[in-house]
Amino acid sequence: MRKFLIRRLLMMVPLLLGISILSFLIMHLAPGDPATLNAAMRSNIDPSYIEKLQVFYGLKDPLYLQYWHWLERFCTFDFGDSFRDSRPVLIVIAERIPATVYLSGLSLILLFVIAVPLGVGAAYYQNRFFDRFVSVFTFVGYSAPHYWVALMLMLLFGVNWGILPISGMADTNLDYLPWYSRGGDYLAHLILPLAVTTYGSLASVSRYARTSMLEVIRQDYIRTARAKGLSEFQVIFNHALRNALIPIVTLFGLFLPSVLGGAVIIETIFSWPGMGRLFWESIVSHNYPVVMGVGIILAFFTLLGNFLADIGYALLDPRVRYD
């Protein structure tokens, strides 16, 4: 087991290296550079400014040298400076974590809290009304384009009924609200984005929970438990559910990195200052250091998530052995 874990940990190094080379190449071989993007065709700007920026960003060096410089700094945990505002990439990214985790983290928790009971219930009532209802209910959420639903909700709850704010994390005037309404204000701003992100993902998790529960229910030991005359409640909660939850816990681990990745569209449409939007806006503006930074950090946490999921699996399920 220990050997396996160490091997997995060591494996992360070449993986991360590979990812960094891959994303570096994708970005740099693509047409266009950030300086041209910023300053071309603006008659109040000196044409020589473009070249000045290219030198400042280090884009005049050959590609391999640019990558080497990046790698050198990366080894000292220096991700470079953002092209956008010359601040260190790590600070730029750290700034996004609270808002991202606040929305995506809460959404993830809410997602499992709602989806797992739905899935387990659906398995228990397989092929009966509740099962069908859960299928349709969750797939309805999955099938509608997020931003379409978001816009409709904004129009209804915001403009037409005027009961919820439309976008942003808090009221612009927040600092001047009395303390007791600040919490409410934060909550009010959270409702729509949280509802849209969570509802959209219910399908996959509840399906997963259903499958996992179905597999457990038909196991011999459940039949044995029933045969022993245990109450239905005990069979389901003490025996079945416990075992069904093992793969679900792993799934939770695999979902964690997506929390950090945020949600590009929801963050954009709700003016939420999260990581997805940062990544997206950096891509659009060819802000290479930030794209690399976010990419590497996400990759790291994905690998870590997989790793933890494996450990969790091993700890929860004694049948699993790694060697």
Partner: peptide, 10 residues
């Protein structure tokens, strides 16, 4: 900062 023009109008 409201990155979506439709949101801005709403």
């Amino acid at each position: 900062i409201v990155p979506d023009q439709a949101t801005e109008f709403l």
